[in-house]
Structure formats: structure tokens, C-alpha cells
């Protein structure tokens, strides 16, 4: 939500809402001391994903239903008080916002290559068990 309580009307304003929610989630999540590094890196990854979702032109208008979706996702993130659940939400939240901001209505797909599934091992990357 923007400062005056209305949904954001531009992609840049929506990004600001989402980034605020992400940082708040991180504050809750980082209280799990053993996971501080993971939370820190996950937050950085989330920031980058949100920025990509917002695109290079922050002044670009954002449709009302998409803006409302971002606000709703940010509000849901704000309801998370449990640090362990917050860690899970840190992972999920950027993708939910990405979907809201970038997906064609009903035909949504992740912006990151879904076929490139090998996250850490290039040996495994893209290796389909059905191949």
C-alpha cells in the first residue's frame, strides 16, 4: 500500500510495497539464528526477483487488479509472525508477486527458465529423469 493508503498505480510503487514486505519478513525470519546466512541470501535473491518482476521502467502503470494482488501478498507476508514460517514465505513471496506483476491473465509461467532445474550442480541441470 502506498503512503496515502491507496494501491500503487505504477510498477515502481508496487515494487516498493513488495520490497518493504520482504524486508519485514526477513526481520522475522532472521531470528532463527542457525539460518541467518540462508535468510540473508534468500532475501537478496528475493530482492533481485522482485526487481526483475517490476521491470526497468518504474513509472509504467500497473493494472488495478495486479496492484491489489501485490498489496494482498504484502499484507499476507505481514501476518507472518512465526520465524520458521517466515523463512518459507521469504521463498514464496517474491514468486507470488512476480506472478501478479508479470503473468498474462491465466497463462502464467515463471520468468526463470523452468527447464534449467539444476540449482547448484550443472551435472544435474536440465537433466530430466524421464530423458
Amino acid at each position: 500500500m502506498s503512503n496515502n493508503g491507496t494501491p500503487p498505480t505504477s510498477r515502481g510503487a508496487a515494487l516498493a510495497v513488495a520490497l518493504g514486505a520482504l524486508e519485514a519478513l526477513a526481520l522475522v525470519a532472521e531470528t532463527v539464528a542457525d539460518e541467518w546466512t540462508y535468510v540473508s541470501r534468500l532475501t537478496a535473491s528475493g530482492r533481485a526477483r522482485l526487481a526483475r518482476a517490476a521491470g526497468p521502467a518504474p513509472e509504467t502503470p500497473l493494472a488495478e487488479e495486479r496492484a491489489s494482488a501485490v498489496v494482498a501478498a504484502a499484507a499476507e507476508a505481514g501476518r507472518v509472525n512465526d520465524p520458521h514460517r517466515a523463512i518459507d514465505w521469504l521463498s514464496t513471496f517474491p514468486a507470488v508477486v512476480e506472478l501478479a506483476m508479470t503473468a498474462p491473465a491465466g497463462i502464467a509461467a515463471p520468468s526463470e527458465g523452468a527447464t534449467d532445474e539444476g540449482a547448484a550442480s550443472r551435472d544435474a541441470a536440465g537433466t530430466s529423469p524421464g530423458a
Binding site: R41, L42, E117, A119
Partner: peptide, 14 residues
């Protein structure tokens, strides 16, 4: 059942 990017972050620190 989680995002690829999050798995990448997790695997990188393991």
C-alpha cells in the same frame, strides 16, 4: 515443492 531459486540458495551453502 519450492522455488528453484530458493533451492539454489540453499544448495550453495550446503
Amino acid at each position: 515443492f519450492d522455488l528453484r531459486a530458493s533451492c539454489a540458495v540453499r544448495l550453495a551453502e550446503r
